[in-house]
Nucleic acid binder design. Structure first.
Length: 255
DNA sequence: GCGACAG
DNA sequence: ATCTTGTCGC
């Protein structure tokens, strides 16, 4: 899945520019996405969905995550592709980059996506969907990390966050699979779901990224989180980017 | 102005 | 996210 077409030169530098970019991309998010045969390309180009690589394989699902070394201004991203049936790792890649943006609630995508796009671009296979560590439509301007990545790549994306952010929810019932609405206190609308992936354990927060519905996003999350609270995709991506950052630091001791 | 705030 | 000790449990 060759590198995606995006120029670092156009990446927002200020919060105002970043917010303007989110408003520009927001209308490009697709709820369920057209049938494969009529599916338009991503916002940046006709064949952006695969970056010019192989067609998406719905039997595969990817997970992405990043780790930081704030002191050296470094960010390491990891992309791990799993077989949706066996949850076996099919392929994994990493990418190192300079931190391109500070952490600002609501603008997380500008901090993490450059490196994530780099890792995804190194994959040989094209997954049918990508699970992100964060939110999708559940966002102040309805363009969280997951939705943003989806619009940029054309790939189907899902957002699975570990905390409620600024949203409201009631505790889901104890059984695995139970869920309750995640609502935006500002508008009252349902922006996602608090989902119990493990009996009696703190829920995860699922929201739609791009080209998928909330129910399917929830089903996919449950399929990926059987033994642990978090999806296997994010667990693998998390350990890989941390491991990579650690050995990178080991080779470049403190200055 | 103050508090809250994905990762 | 990262920092950071010990502790309970499979």
């Amino acid at each position: 899945m060759p590198a995606f077409a995006w120029s670092a030169a156009d990446w927002p530098t200020t919060e105002a520019e970043a917010i303007a970019e989110q408003e520009r991309l927001r209308p490009l998010v697709q709820p369920h996405g057209p049938a494969p045969s009529t599916r338009p390309g991503a916002a940046t180009g006709a064949h952006a969905a695969t970056g010019g690589g192989p067609a998406p394989d719905d039997r595969l699902i990817a997970g992405v995550d990043v780790a930081y070394d704030e002191e050296r201004d470094l960010v390491v991203a990891a992309a791990v592709v799993l077989d949706l049936d066996t949850l076996a790792v099919v392929e994994q890649t990493t990418a190192v980059d300079r931190v391109a943006f500070p952490y600002v609630p609501g603008l997380l995508a500008f901090r993490e996506l450059p490196a994530v796009l780099g890792a995804l671009g190194r994959l040989t296979r094209t997954p049918g969907a990508v699970v992100c560590d964060g939110y999708g439509l559940a966002h102040p301007r309805r363009l969280g990390l997951a939705s943003h990545l989806g619009v940029l790549t054309g790939l189907r994306t899902i957002g699975v966050a570990k905390t409620p952010f600024t949203f409201d929810h009631h505790e889901p019932d104890a059984p695995r699979g139970s869920w309750s609405p995640l609502t935006d206190p500002a508008t009252g609308e349902e922006v996602g779901r608090a989902l119990r992936t493990r009996p009696g354990v703190k829920p995860v927060f699922v929201s739609v990224g791009h080209r998928i519905g909330l129910s399917e996003a929830v089903d996919t999350t449950l399929a990926l989180a059987r033994r642990y609270r978090l999806p296997e995709t994010t667990r693998h991506a998390d350990s890989l980017c941390r491991r990579t950052l650690a050995e990178l630091q080991r080779g470049t001791p403190a200055n």
